[in-house]
Structures are given as C-alpha cells and as structure tokens.
C-alpha cells in the first residue's frame, strides 16, 4: 500500500539547512495499522505529510497504492491533532465537507455521514455547532469527516494527543472499532503519536524514529491478538513491547 524508499527531507531555516528526515525506508501493507513513534521534533508529522503528498521529499521515493507520490494523494483521509471543524457549520455539515470539496453531491452522502456519527456516539449531535461539543466529541466528528468518502488510507497525526488520558483511551478503542478490527476490508492506517502505550495498543507494527534527523531506529511488530480490549493493556506481552520501544527511544536519544 505504502512504500517509502530512502526518504530524506531537508528544509531551509533562518540558521541554515535543517535535516529533518534521513533515509527512511519501510512499507505498509494494505489493511495494516502502523504507528510512528518518536520524540517531538523527529519529523514524524513531516513524514506523514510526505506520504500524503502535501510536502515533497528532498530525496528518496514514495509510492501509495502503486503510484509514485508527486502531489496530494487523492481522497486520503486525514485527522490532525486539532479537530479543525468549521465553526459555522453544524456537525453533520462538517462531516460532509470532503464531499463538497471533492465536487460530489453532499446530499448523496448525508445518510452515510449520519451513520458514521451514530457509530461514534454523536448521533444526537449532528445538528449542533462544534462549540457545543467537547474536545473528544469534536475529534470524533473529525474522524467521521475523514471516513466520509471511505478512503482506503487514513493518515492520523497525533489525533488524540490533545485529549485527556481517559478520553484518549476511549477513542483508541473507538478507532479500532470503526476501523473494523475483525473485517477484511479494513483500511490502511498510519498513526503518528508520541505515546508508546497508544502505539502498542493500536498498531500491527510500530516504526520507532530517532531524534533529528529522524531515522528508523527499529520496526517493531506487535503480535498482540485482536480485537484488543481494555485488558490488552494489562497483559505481560503488552508491557514487554512497551518497554522494548521505551528502551529503543532512550538509546537513540
């Protein structure tokens, strides 16, 4: 689904060129959930933007779905750290935004938008304005917006990073449920986070990045059984994986 081959990124700052990413290579298979973990400033968000085609890589090649990425990857689902809902639109109209931007008839997607909102427990809030919802609810709505056009690829940039720990745990479970852990048609997800626990809980594999310039320290498979539950976090295997990643990050720092 995604192939990164020797991706590097250097940007120009006032003080001179800054190397943000260096020779990043890994693949993400279709239907896989891969988490990118690393200290802040390791370029993980930049890497996500490179995959989305929103920023060009300085070196190396990126392919998504078998096509080389040269510009924005069409119709990829994106969730950011802030929900960035349009303040003047009701929740359901916010969820329908991608259809409008893509030049599709939003009326045809209304049923799906409402269904998605029901799925994340916002069925009764479809006609509210964003300001009437809590941060966690707004982020749920942002997830629905990303899923509206049923994109095969979902890119998530610390989507739950701004939420409190309880809401974050709750939304992790919700994401897995919406993703369809058990189903075969599940989407490919690349999930950026700086929380080791979140990465291990969600991912099939964790890409551990080093501090600037960001390089791949290790690709850690997460062979925990699915569907994952609240108990998953308490299992010894979970603890061992979290510790392993913790040590990898500590060593590379």
């Amino acid at each position: 689904m995604i192939v990164l081959d020797g991706v590097g990124m250097t940007y120009r700052a006032a003080s001179g060129p800054v190397e943000a990413l260096r020779s990043i290579s890994f693949r993400v298979d279709g239907g896989e959930l891969v988490a990118l973990v690393g200290p802040s400033g390791c370029g993980k968000s930049t890497l996500l933007r490179i995959i989305a085609g929103l920023r060009p890589a300085t070196t190396g090649r990126v392919a998504v779905g078998g096509h080389a990425v040269t510009g924005p990857v069409p119709a990829v689902g994106m969730v950011f750290q802030a929900p960035i809902l349009l303040k003047w639109r009701r929740i359901v109209e916010n969820v329908l935004l991608p259809a409008e931007l893509a030049g599709l008839d939003p009326g045809a997607f209304r049923g799906r938008a409402l269904e998605l909102l029901r799925l994340v427990g916002l069925g009764d809030f479809a006609d509210r304005l964003p300001r009437e919802l809590s941060g966690g609810m707004q982020q749920r709505a942002a997830l629905c917006r990303a899923l509206l056009l049923d994109p095969p690829l979902l890119l998530m940039d610390e989507p739950f990073g701004a939420l409190d720990a309880m809401t974050r745990d709750e939304l992790n479970l919700e994401l897995l449920r919406v993703w369809g852990e058990g189903s075969r048609t599940r989407k490919t997800i690349v999930f950026v986070t700086h929380s080791i626990v979140e990465a291990v809980f969600l991912a099939d594999r964790v890409v551990v990045l080093t501090p600037r310039p960001g390089r791949v320290a290790e690709l850690v498979p997460v062979p925990l059984p699915r569907p994952r539950t609240v108990e998953t976090r308490a299992s010894p295997a979970f603890g061992a994986l979290a510790l392993q990643i913790h040590l990898l990050l500590a060593r590379s720092a």
């Binding site: 933007r49 989305a52 929103l54 924005p72 990857v73 069409p74 119709a75 990829v76 994106m78 950011f80 802030a82 960035i84 349009l86 003047w88 935004l97 991608p98 409008e100 931007l101 893509a102 030049g103 056009l149």
Partner: peptide, 25 residues
C-alpha cells in the same frame, strides 16, 4: 488553519471553492 487548506488540497478542491466554503465564512 493550514490543515484545513490541506484538506482542500487532498480533495482536489479548486481555489475558488476553498475561498467560498472556508475563507469567506
């Protein structure tokens, strides 16, 4: 928000549409 404009780019929205749907309101 830069990210909102990113959404416009991902969905291939022309400049006028981003203007009418996002910037003007």
């Amino acid at each position: 928000d830069e990210e909102l404009l990113d959404l416009g780019r991902v969905f291939g929205a022309p400049k006028w549409k981003v203007f009418v749907k996002i910037r003007l309101p």
